[in-house]
């Protein structure tokens, strides 16, 4: 065995992953950011560099400005629903499932997680059907409820779509919270109980502080996941975020912009600018997480 020979085997081991990952993930992400600084002249031809022109147009042009601000606001509302409904509900379910005294925990856990493994398309159609004016009305009439067209009204469409998404995904943070809760040593809880703490005290004073790292991870995953949501709105409300753009998210706006939809012509460079805005928002969220929440909690985190 010659010791000084170039370690070709390391190159062989790394090459497939590095090549596929670089070519189909890193290069497109960087190229997309580059493209967002270019535009195609109206008479056609090659793309020309315009600096931040696309971004400026996105936030000042009378055609784009209302769309991007509405999509930003809707996406934010969509995210807030997940933070305020999905994550507390997940924590509640996980707390119940973490109790050693509850029999059949594994069965509950598996069943509650089921919607998260089904495709968003399926979930979207199922709920669209259940809430539809034809089948849904017949369905709810059986239990004596007159069903308003929840997905068709401007005021209710976005909250209802958000809640469908919450319903589908609650299992994921539930599992994460459950893993964190199970890893809390029993002695800590026993000690608190011996000192006379109630179950509620134990939750607020012992369990919650100890699972804070997971709360942070769940928050950042919720943020990243929801700021590029697309499938559910596209399936139930269409690419225009019906009714009247009330459910239009950054994801649907991005799709319409670069792919074109009905009368709107595809505009790839404007599309990359929308993606650039999404990228900056996600990056900001991840950085805030890394430099504030995670740094403060680093003592409790296992590794990172």
């Amino acid at each position: 065995m010659s010791k000084k020979a170039f370690p070709w085997h390391i190159v062989v081991f790394l090459a497939p992953a590095v090549i596929i990952y670089t070519l189909f993930m890193i290069y497109p992400l960087l190229d997309s950011l580059r493209l967002s600084l270019y535009t195609v002249p109206e008479q056609g031809g090659a793309e020309v560099f315009i600096g931040l022109g696309n971004y400026q147009r996105l936030f000042t042009d009378p055609f784009w400005q209302p769309q991007i601000t509405r999509a930003l606001a809707n996406t934010f509302e969509f995210f807030v629903f997940h933070m305020l409904v999905q994550n507390p509900l997940a924590l509640l379910l996980a707390t119940l499932l973490a109790s050693r005294f509850v029999a059949g925990r594994a069965i509950y856990r598996t069943l509650i997680f089921t919607p998260s493994v089904l495709s968003v398309v399926l979930i979207g159609f199922i709920w669209q059907l259940i809430l539809s004016p034809v089948f849904g009305r017949a369905l709810f009439a059986q239990i004596g409820i007159r069903l308003p067209p929840l997905l068709g009204q401007v005021e209710t469409a976005l909250p209802v779509v958000s809640l469908i998404s919450v319903w589908q995904w609650v299992g994921v943070p539930m599992m994460l919270f459950l893993a964190a809760l199970i890893s809390i040593p029993d002695e800590l809880i026993e000690a608190a109980r011996v000192d006379g703490a109630t179950a509620l005290d134990v939750f607020w004073r012992v369990k919650l502080p100890l699972i804070m790292p997971t709360v942070g991870i769940v928050a950042v995953l919720t943020f990243v996941g929801n700021f590029n949501a697309f499938d559910l709105v596209y399936t139930t409300q269409g690419a225009l975020g019906a009714p009247d753009y009330s459910t239009d998210l950054l994801g649907t706006l991005f799709y319409r912009t670069f792919f074109g939809f009905q009368l709107q012509l595809p505009n790839q460079t404007m599309g990359t600018a929308v993606a650039g805005v999404m990228f900056l928002i996600i990056l900001a969220g991840v950085l805030i997480y890394l430099f504030t929440i995670q740094r403060r909690l680093v003592a409790n985190t296992v590794e990172m």
């Binding site: 790394l14 992953a17 590095v18 990952y21 070519l23 189909f24 993930m25 890193i26 290069y27 497109p28 992400l29 190229d31 997309s32 493209l35 990243v224 590029n228 697309f230 994801g251 991005f254 670069f258 790839q268 599309g271 990359t272 993606a275 999404m278 990228f279 996600i282 990056l283 991840v286």
Partner: peptide, 24 residues
Amino acid sequence: LLGLYLSIGIMVPIRLGTVSILRL
């Protein structure tokens, strides 16, 4: 460094590069 490079993709959604992926 290579380990870090390979883990960038854990946090950044690949969908954001869709326009360039489509061209590629």
